[in-house]
């Protein structure tokens, strides 16, 4: 804390003394719900990296919420320099509606612009009193399932698709899958707008028997929020979630942040960032850079992808989550 103050003071003095030499950047990163802890740490690392490299000071500001909601805020005028959201469709929507991001954004960074991946697991209460082992247990009567609202949350859409993929594989058809998720959502008492709200509902309010959660959020709940109160259950099949990142070109350019915004995202692929990513329970793109002890925590399970199973996000979104889509048809609270 003290050191940064000293650095800050030096930077201010330097800025006054040599106005042309050092610049101040304020970067706005609009992100989804469970990345709070990750970016708090990453922002510190990046600020230092950028300072060492260019002498400029960067302050990164964060906004978190359900990915769909966050995308709408950006469409509605929230001036994000970079967006780091839960799924590609939300960034597509920003690109489409505002024209501030080029259509080919996803090919600009490695791994479809996803510096980290994750998946969906179950969080249950200590001792697993309802004996939940796999997706089939979620549709049993009397089991209360917590998941956020797919209309506003990205994680919730991954949850929905994971359940769908499982049922389709298990029972053979889209009709059966629809029946399955209908039953599943009958067991959902509350839809929060973001993953963090759902975590609060499950952990703090004590509502629900099982929480369909981002893997990282489940670990966070397990290790930091209610140590000894919860258990993670790994289903037989889940989905490979790829939360992508991109620069909002026009906004960043306007604010004079284009270069630093690009560097901010590229640096996510550096070995020091990949290490932090694994530490915060995200699956790193380059596992070789992470601490092996961190990697060991990730369970092994069968993961399907949106592209193979659902023909990409555009299609999945239109079929399931657009107005009048499958979700609207099946969810009646």
């Amino acid at each position: 804390m003290k050191l940064t103050t000293i650095f800050g003071t030096i930077a201010t003095v330097a800025a006054i003394a040599f106005p042309a030499a050092a610049k101040d950047h304020t970067l706005l990163n609009v992100s989804y719900d469970p990345t709070r802890e990750l970016y708090v740490e990453y922002n510190k690392v990046f600020t230092k990296y950028w300072k060492d490299k260019t002498g400029d000071t960067v302050i990164v500001q964060q906004s978190h919420g359900g990915a769909g909601k966050q995308a709408r805020a950006v469409i509605d005028g929230l001036e994000a320099d970079v967006v780091t959201l839960a799924l590609a469709y939300d960034i597509d929507a920003i690109a489409e509606r505002t024209g501030r991001i080029p259509a080919n954004w996803q090919s600009r960074l490695p791994n479809n612009s996803a510096p980290y991946t994750s998946t969906i697991v179950f969080l249950v209460r200590k001792g697993n009193p309802k004996g939940i082992k796999d997706w089939d247990d979620l549709v049993k009567p009397g089991v209360s399932v917590i998941t956020p609202n797919p209309k506003t949350s990205g994680g919730a859409r991954w949850n929905f698709l994971a359940a769908w993929a499982y049922a389709k594989k298990q029972y053979g058809s889209d009709e059966k899958a629809k029946e399955f998720v209908t039953k599943l959502y009958k067991n959902v008492p509350v839809l929060d707008s973001g993953a963090r709200g759902s975590t609060i509902t499950f952990v703090q309010r004590g509502i629900g028997d099982v929480f369909l959660s981002w893997e990282n959020e489940a670990f966070l709940a397990l290790n930091e929020l209610g140590a000894g109160k919860f258990e993670i259950v790994v289903p037989s099949l889940s989905i490979l979630a790829e939360p992508p990142v991109t620069v909002v070109d026009k906004t960043a350019k306007k604010k004079g942040n284009l270069e630093v915004a690009q560097a901010y995202l590229e640096h996510l692929y550096s070995s020091e960032a990949q290490r932090i990513i694994a530490k915060h329970y995200y699956r790193p793109f380059k596992p070789e850079d992470a601490d092996p002890a961190d990697l060991k925590r990730f369970p092994k399970l069968e993961l399907v992808t949106v592209d193979e199973e659902f023909g990409g996000w555009q299609k999945a979104q239109k079929t399931h989550f657009a107005d009048g889509g499958t979700f609207d048809q099946i969810y009646k609270p």
Partner: peptide, 13 residues
């Protein structure tokens, strides 16, 4: 403001 924290926000209930 005061209600959202204490209500649990469950649709229908």
């Amino acid at each position: 403001g005061s209600v959202v924290f204490i209500s649990g926000n469950m649709p229908m209930r």
